[in-house]
Amino acid sequence: MTERQELLSGLAVTVFRLNGQFLDVAEGLARPAGLTAAHWQVLGAVTKEPLPVAGIARAMGITRQAVQRIADILAEKGMVEYLPNPAHRRAKLVAPTEEGLEAVRRIGPAHAAFADRLCEALGDDRAADVHRLLGELSTTLEALAAEEHG
């Protein structure tokens, strides 16, 4: 294997591990509010504005089918509702209900405490650098995928 192949493999394994670690943290933060990490992820995507399922999937990097399943569960629990979409008759908008927003608010204090612990452990500047670099990696992977499919 070339050095670049080893680097790519190392990046992938590290990101996969990070994904698992973030999911574990998110599960722990969401559980006391009666949510799962997946529920919180979908609710979090629509707290600022209602989005169609496809928009949530794009923003979160998960499949439309997974988002639809989770949105349906959240709708059954009364945490989101489906609204008409003026831009697309068949693709309804997912919007949080007051109950859904309250569940997200209940996560806030523990979320803030964990954010403080993480930033204190890494340092604020280093945490910001990691965030920026992960964003650059994501944008680059997206561009490379578009080149292949475009």
Rank of each mutant, 00 (worst) to 15 (best):
P52D: 04
R105D: 13
R106P: 02
D116Q: 14
K92L: 10
R4H: 11
G34H: 09
V42F: 03
E147S: 10
A115L: 12
A12N: 08
L134E: 10
R64G: 06
A30I: 07
R58S: 11
A146C: 11
R105K: 14
L51C: 06
G135V: 02
T139E: 12
R89V: 10
R90C: 01
L83A: 12
R126C: 07
V104C: 04
V53M: 03
P32H: 01
M1R: 08
A128W: 09
V25I: 14
I107R: 04
G108F: 02
T97D: 04
E142F: 12
R17M: 06
G108Q: 14
P84M: 02
L7E: 03
T140V: 15
T2G: 15
T14G: 00
A66K: 09
V25H: 05
T47L: 08
P52F: 05
W40A: 15
H39R: 10
L93A: 03
P50E: 00
H39L: 00
D124Q: 12
A115G: 09
P32Y: 07
P32Q: 03
I107G: 05
R17A: 11
M1Q: 04
L8K: 08
N19Q: 13
G55Y: 07
V53F: 00
V25K: 05
L74G: 04
V80M: 04
A143E: 15
E98T: 11
G10T: 09
G44A: 09
V13Y: 08
V130G: 05
F22C: 01
D72V: 05
K48C: 04
A37G: 12
G135T: 14
P84V: 06
